[in-house]
Amino acid sequence: MADLDEQFAKAQVDVKKLTTRPSNDDLLTLYATFKQATAGDASGAKKPGRFDMVGRAKYDAWTKLAGVSSDDAKRRYVATAERLLGR
């Protein structure tokens, strides 16, 4: 467990060092898996209004992960980060 938490923490730091901006889909994946890993399901979060397109896209990406465990979300985050970093 601690190993996964360490990988997750390292991936968060490493993603900030990317020299090129990831695609919007990759950014949404990183956001959604981070939120699912740290906050759980989006059921308690308020859905952004229709004029907040960025907030809405982020919320929708997060809600698609409903039911995914924290550990699985961390693994997905790390895998996405590793792919973006070319590892």
Rank of each mutant, 00 (worst) to 15 (best):
K35C: 01
V13W: 08
K46G: 05
M53R: 15
T29R: 13
A42K: 01
G49P: 02
K35Y: 00
L30S: 05
L30I: 11
V13A: 13
A37M: 09
Q12S: 12
V13T: 14
K47S: 10
R56F: 05
D41C: 03
M53T: 15
T20M: 08
R50N: 14
T29W: 03
Q12K: 15
V54Q: 14
K17N: 08
P48L: 10
D26T: 04
A42V: 03
T20R: 08
A37T: 08
D14M: 12
A32F: 01
T20G: 04
K16G: 09
R21D: 12
D14I: 09
T33V: 05
G49W: 03
F51T: 13
K46Q: 13
G55A: 08
K17R: 11
R21L: 11
K47P: 07
T20H: 08
D52G: 05
S43D: 15
K17A: 07
Q36D: 01
S43F: 12
G55E: 06
Q12M: 14
K46F: 06
D14H: 09
V15I: 15
G55M: 07
T33I: 04
L28K: 11
F51W: 14
A32N: 04
G40W: 02
Q12Y: 06
G44Y: 10
D25G: 05
M53L: 15
D14N: 13
S23I: 00
D14W: 08
T38C: 07
T29Q: 12
D26S: 11
T29G: 14
K16E: 08
T38F: 06
G55Y: 06
G49C: 04
M53W: 12
N24F: 11
R21S: 13
F34N: 05
L27F: 10
G40C: 05
R56Q: 13
Q12P: 08
G49H: 01
A42E: 00
L30P: 03
A42Y: 00
S43C: 07
A32T: 02
T33L: 01
K16H: 07
F51M: 14
A32K: 00
N24C: 05
Y31P: 03
K16F: 02
L30W: 04
K16N: 09
Y31A: 05
V15Q: 07
K17D: 01
T33A: 01
T29S: 12
F34V: 02
M53D: 10
K35T: 00
K47F: 09
K17S: 08
T29D: 09
Q36G: 03
K16W: 03
K47D: 12
F34I: 01
K16P: 02
K47T: 13
L28E: 07
D52N: 15
D26R: 03
L30Q: 05
A45P: 04
F51Y: 13
A42D: 00
T33Y: 00
L27T: 09
A42P: 00
R50A: 13
L28Y: 09
R56P: 01
N24W: 10
S43A: 15
Q36M: 03
K16A: 12
K47M: 14
R56D: 06
V54D: 15
M53K: 15
K16S: 10
G44H: 13
K46P: 02
T38S: 15
V15R: 07
D25E: 15
D26V: 02
D41P: 01
K47Q: 15
T33C: 00
R21Y: 07
V54C: 05
A42W: 01
K35P: 00
A32D: 02
R21I: 08
V13F: 10
M53V: 13
F34E: 03
N24R: 14
